[in-house]
Measured scan of single mutants.
Amino acid sequence: MTEYKLVVVGAGGVGKSALTIQLIQNHFVDEYDPTIEDSYRKQVVIDGETCLLDILDTAGQEEYSAMRDQYMRTGEGFLCVFAINNTKSFEDIHHYREQIKRVKDSEDVPMVLVGNKCDLPSRTVDTKQAQDLARSYGIPFIETSAKTRQGVDDAFYTLVREIRKHKEKMSKDGKKKKKKSKTKCVIM
Score class of each variant (00 low, 15 high):
Thr2Lys: 08
Asn116Lys: 01
Lys5Arg: 12
Lys117Val: 14
Asp30Leu: 12
Ile21Glu: 13
Ile24His: 07
Ala155Val: 08
Val14Gly: 12
Glu37Pro: 02
Leu56Ile: 15
Lys182Glu: 11
Val125Thr: 09
Gly151Asn: 09
Gly60Asn: 00
Val186Cys: 11
Ile187Glu: 08
Gly48Ala: 07
His166Tyr: 06
Gly115Lys: 04
Ala66Thr: 06
Lys128Pro: 05
Glu107Leu: 11
Val81Phe: 06
Pro34Arg: 01
Ile163Gly: 03
Leu133Met: 06
Met67Asp: 00
Arg135Val: 08
Val29Thr: 10
Arg123Asn: 14
Asp54Trp: 02
His94Lys: 15
Glu31Gln: 11
Ala155Asp: 03
Pro34Leu: 02
Ile84Gln: 14
Gln150Leu: 06
Asp33Cys: 01
Ile46Ser: 14
Thr124Pro: 10
Leu120Glu: 11
Lys165Ser: 10
Lys128Val: 05
Leu120Pro: 15
Gln25Cys: 13
Ile46Thr: 14
Val112Glu: 01
Asp119Ser: 11
Thr74Arg: 02
Lys5Trp: 02
Lys175Ala: 14
His95Thr: 15
Gly13His: 14
Asp57Cys: 00
His27Phe: 11
Glu107Gln: 10
Cys185Tyr: 04
Lys101Gln: 11
Tyr96Lys: 01
Lys88Gly: 08
Leu23Met: 11
Val45Ser: 12
Glu168Ser: 11
Glu76Arg: 03
Thr74Ser: 07
Lys176Ile: 05
Gln25Asn: 15
Cys80Pro: 01
Lys101Pro: 01
Ala130Tyr: 14
Phe141Ala: 03
Arg161Tyr: 04
Gln70Cys: 08
Val112Gln: 02
Thr87Pro: 07
Ser122His: 08
Pro110Asn: 04
Leu23Thr: 14
Thr74Asp: 15
His27Ser: 13
Asp47Phe: 13
Ile187Asp: 14
Lys178Gln: 13
Ser136Val: 09
Gly10Trp: 02
Glu49Ile: 06
Glu107Pro: 12
Glu62Ile: 04
Asp47Leu: 06
Thr50Cys: 07
Val152Arg: 14
Gly15Asn: 03
Ala155Lys: 06
Asp119Ile: 11
Val109Lys: 02
Val9His: 10
Val114Ser: 02
Val112Trp: 03
Gly138Ile: 03
Val45Tyr: 07
His27Tyr: 12
Lys42Pro: 09
Ile24Lys: 07
Glu31Trp: 11
Met188Glu: 15
Met170Tyr: 12
Pro34Ile: 03
Thr124Asn: 10
Lys180Thr: 15
Lys128Ile: 09
Tyr137His: 06
Glu98Val: 02
Ile21Cys: 14
Phe141Thr: 03
Ala66Glu: 03
Asp132Tyr: 05
Val186Ala: 15
Val114Glu: 01
Val45Ile: 09
Lys5Pro: 13
Ser122Tyr: 12
Ser106Thr: 13
Asp132Leu: 05
Ile100Cys: 05
Lys169Cys: 08
Val186Arg: 09
Asp132Val: 05
Glu49Arg: 08
Gln131Tyr: 04
Val125Phe: 08
Glu162Asp: 06
Leu159His: 01
Val44Gly: 12
Gly12Met: 13
Lys5Val: 03
Thr127Leu: 10
Gln70Ile: 01
Lys175Tyr: 06
Arg164Ser: 09
Phe28Val: 03
Ala134Thr: 11
Val14Cys: 06
Thr183Met: 12
Lys178Ile: 12
Val103Ser: 05
Lys165Ile: 13
Gln150Gly: 11
Ile55Trp: 02
Thr2Arg: 12
Ser171Arg: 04
His94Tyr: 05
Ile24Asp: 12
Val103Thr: 14
Gly60Cys: 00
Asp92Gln: 04
Lys176Gly: 10
Gln70Val: 02
Arg164His: 14
Ser89Cys: 15
Met188Thr: 11
Asp108Thr: 05
Ser122Pro: 08
Ser39Val: 12
Gly75Cys: 04
Gly48Met: 07
Glu107Thr: 13
Ile55Cys: 07
Glu31Leu: 13
Lys184Glu: 10
Gly75Met: 03
Asp92Ala: 09
Ala11Asp: 08
Gln99Met: 15
Leu159Tyr: 12
Lys16Cys: 06
Asn86Val: 04
Arg149Asn: 07
Lys169Arg: 06
Glu98Lys: 03
Gln129Phe: 15
Thr20Gly: 03
Val45Leu: 10
Tyr40Phe: 03
Ser122Ala: 09
Asp47Pro: 06
Asp69Ala: 02
Lys177Tyr: 08
Lys180Met: 10
Ala59Gln: 00
Lys42Gly: 04
Phe90Arg: 15
Asp126Met: 09
Val125Leu: 08
Pro110Ala: 04
Ser181His: 09
Gln61Met: 07
Arg97Ala: 11
Val152Ile: 11
Val29Gly: 05
Val14Thr: 10
Phe78Gln: 01
Thr87Arg: 10
Gly151Leu: 13
Glu76Leu: 04
Ala83Pro: 14
Glu168Phe: 05
Gly151Ile: 08
Lys178Phe: 09
Glu98Arg: 12
Thr58Glu: 01
Glu98Tyr: 03
Lys5Gln: 14
Tyr32Cys: 02
Tyr32Leu: 03
Leu23Pro: 00
Lys167Asn: 07
Ile93Arg: 04
Leu19Ala: 14
Lys180Asp: 15
Phe141Gly: 06
Asp47Asn: 09
Lys177Leu: 04
Cys118Thr: 11
Tyr71Gln: 00
Ile46Ala: 12
Asp126Lys: 11
Ala155Thr: 08
Thr58Pro: 01
Lys104Trp: 15
Ile139Met: 05
Asp154Lys: 06
Val8Asp: 03
Leu6Pro: 04
Val152Thr: 10
Ala83Val: 03
Ala66Arg: 03
Pro34Cys: 03
Ala146Leu: 04
Ser39Gln: 04
Val112Pro: 05
Leu79Arg: 00
Asn85Tyr: 06
Asp173Ile: 09
Met111Trp: 03
Cys80Leu: 12
Lys182Gly: 14
Leu52Gly: 13
Lys182Trp: 04
Ala130Lys: 09
Gly10Val: 09
Ser106Leu: 11
Gln99Tyr: 05
Asp154Gly: 07
Thr74Pro: 02
Arg149Tyr: 13
Asp57Gln: 00
Glu98Asn: 14
Phe78Asp: 05
Tyr32Lys: 00
Thr124Lys: 09
Asp92Asn: 09
Ala155His: 12
Lys147Arg: 09
Ala134Ile: 09
Tyr157Ser: 11
Val9Phe: 01
Asn86His: 04
Val9Ser: 09
Phe90Ile: 13
Glu3Cys: 05
Gln129Arg: 09
Met170Cys: 06
Ile24Thr: 07
Arg97Val: 15
Asn86Asp: 15
Val109Ser: 04
Ser181Ala: 09
Ala18Arg: 03
Phe156Ile: 08
Asn86Lys: 12
Lys169Glu: 07
Thr2Pro: 14
Ile139Thr: 07
Arg161Gln: 15
Ala18Gln: 12
Arg123Cys: 13
Ile142Tyr: 08
Glu143Val: 05
Ser136Thr: 08
His94Met: 07
Asp154Ala: 07
Val9Tyr: 01
Thr183Asp: 15
Asp173Thr: 07
Cys51Asn: 10
Lys175Arg: 14
Asp69Met: 02
Ala134Arg: 10
Leu113Ala: 07
Leu19Gln: 13
Met72Phe: 01
Gly115Cys: 13
Leu133Ala: 08
Val7Leu: 02
Lys117Asp: 14
Ile142Arg: 12
Glu107Ile: 07
Cys185Arg: 12
Gly12Trp: 14
Asp47Glu: 12
Lys42Asp: 10
Glu98Thr: 04
Asp57Lys: 00
Ser39Ala: 15
Phe156Met: 07
Tyr4Gly: 10
Lys147Asn: 02
Asn116Pro: 04
Glu63His: 04
Thr183Gln: 15
Ile142Leu: 05
Glu143Gly: 13
Met188Lys: 13
Gln25Ile: 15
Asp105Asn: 13
Phe28Pro: 02
Thr74Lys: 01
Leu19Asp: 14
Ser181Glu: 13
Thr2Ser: 12
Val160Phe: 10
Lys182Leu: 09
Leu52Tyr: 12
Asp69His: 03
Ile93Asn: 03
Ile21Asp: 08
Gly115Ile: 08
Leu120Tyr: 14
Gln150Trp: 05
Leu113Thr: 07
Thr124Ala: 08
Arg73Ile: 06
Gly151His: 15
Arg135Ile: 14
His94Thr: 04
Gly151Ala: 05
Thr35Ser: 02
Thr87Gly: 06
Lys88Met: 05
Val112Met: 09
Glu63Met: 03
Glu3Phe: 05
Asn86Arg: 07
Thr50Tyr: 14
His94Ser: 12
Lys128Tyr: 06
Thr74Tyr: 11
Glu107Ser: 11
Tyr71His: 00
Ala134Tyr: 10
Ala59Val: 00
Asn26Ala: 12
Pro110Ser: 03
Ser65Lys: 09
Ala11Cys: 12
Arg123Ala: 12
Val45Thr: 13
Ser136Tyr: 07
Pro121Ser: 11
Gly48Gln: 09
